[in-house]
Amino acid sequence: MSDLSVFVSADIEGVSGWLGDDESTPAARSAMVDDVNAAIRGVLEAAPDASVLVADSHGDKRTIPPDELHERASLLRGGPRPFGMVDGATAETDLAFLVGYHDRPGTGGFLEHTFTGSIADVRLNGRSVGEFELNAVLLAARSIPVGFVTGDDRLGETVADRLPSAAYVTTKTGRGWSSAVCRHPDAVREEIRETAAAVTADPPTDPSTPVPVELPLTVEVEYARASYADIATLWPGVERDEDARTVVHEAADVPTAYQFVRATTKVRTDDA
Rank of each mutant, 00 (worst) to 15 (best):
I119Q: 05
P255N: 11
G147S: 10
V146S: 09
A201S: 14
G117Q: 06
V221H: 00
D153C: 01
T173Y: 07
A232H: 05
D202I: 04
P185S: 14
A232N: 06
T256V: 12
V188S: 06
E242A: 12
E242N: 05
T205F: 02
V199M: 09
D152K: 08
D206I: 13
E250Y: 02
Y223Q: 08
P236K: 12
P164D: 14
I119M: 05
R175D: 11
T218S: 08
E220Q: 09
H249M: 11
I144E: 08
V221L: 05
L215E: 13
P216V: 10
D230C: 07
E194G: 13
P236D: 15
P203M: 11
S143R: 10
Q259R: 15
L215C: 01
Q259D: 08
T209P: 12
T200L: 12
D152L: 06
V254Q: 10
S178G: 08
V188I: 14
V188P: 03
I231W: 05
A201D: 15
R162F: 03
D152P: 01
G174R: 04
C182K: 02
I144V: 15
R240V: 09
W235F: 11
V221F: 01
T246E: 01
L163I: 11
S118Q: 08
P204M: 13
T209L: 12
P145I: 06
Y223H: 10
G130Q: 14
R127F: 14
A226P: 00
T246N: 08
E157G: 04
P236V: 10
N125F: 15
E131P: 11
G151A: 03
D253M: 05
E214D: 15
T173D: 13
S143L: 02
Q259N: 04
I192E: 01
G174K: 00
P203K: 07
T246F: 03
E191T: 10
D186Y: 04
E131A: 12
E250N: 03
V181N: 13
S227L: 14
T256M: 02
S143P: 02
V248P: 00
P145E: 13
A257C: 01
A197E: 07
V146L: 09
S128F: 10
L155Q: 01
H249I: 06
L139C: 09
L139G: 07
R189P: 00
V213F: 05
A187T: 12
R193D: 06
T195G: 02
A136H: 02
Y223T: 07
A167E: 15
A120K: 09
E191S: 12
F260I: 13
R183P: 00
V211Q: 09
A251G: 05
L134G: 08
R154F: 03
E131R: 09
V146I: 07
E133N: 11
A197W: 09
S165G: 12
V247G: 06
Y228G: 06
E239L: 06
E250K: 05
E194D: 15
G126C: 14
I192T: 04
V261F: 06
L124R: 08
T218A: 03
G130I: 12
F260C: 07
T200E: 10
T158V: 15
P212L: 15
A201H: 04
A232E: 12
A187R: 10
A141L: 04
A251F: 08
G130A: 14
T171L: 09
E133W: 05
L234F: 06
E242Y: 08
L234S: 04
V181K: 14
G130S: 14
T246W: 01
L155Y: 01
H249K: 08
